[in-house]
């Protein structure tokens, strides 16, 4: 298991979460926030998948 890569993926995931939270807090729950969230959800899924591949 590649711990270094796993940690990097986790940090990216954390960054995505911070970005989503910031966007939501700044713009409320408008359509811009919604589309940004969908984009981030896609990136987060990729991150989580990468983590799963490293894990198992």
């Amino acid at each position: 298991m590649d711990m270094q890569a796993l940690t990097e993926a986790a940090r990216e995931l954390f960054g995505i979460c911070v970005a989503v939270a910031t966007m939501e807090m700044l713009t409320g729950t408008g359509s811009a926030a919604k589309s940004f969230r969908s984009l981030c959800a896609l990136a987060a899924t990729l991150c989580a998948l990468r983590m799963a591949v490293r894990l198992f």
């Binding site: 711990m3 796993l6 986790a10 995931l13 954390f14 911070v18 989503v20 939270a21 939501e24 969230r37």
Partner: peptide, 22 residues
Amino acid sequence: LPLSGIAAIVAAGGSLSDRFRL
């Protein structure tokens, strides 16, 4: 131990927004 650290990052990140959860 490193996995517990990664779980800690996920726990913190996934709780920052109310609609974006992990």
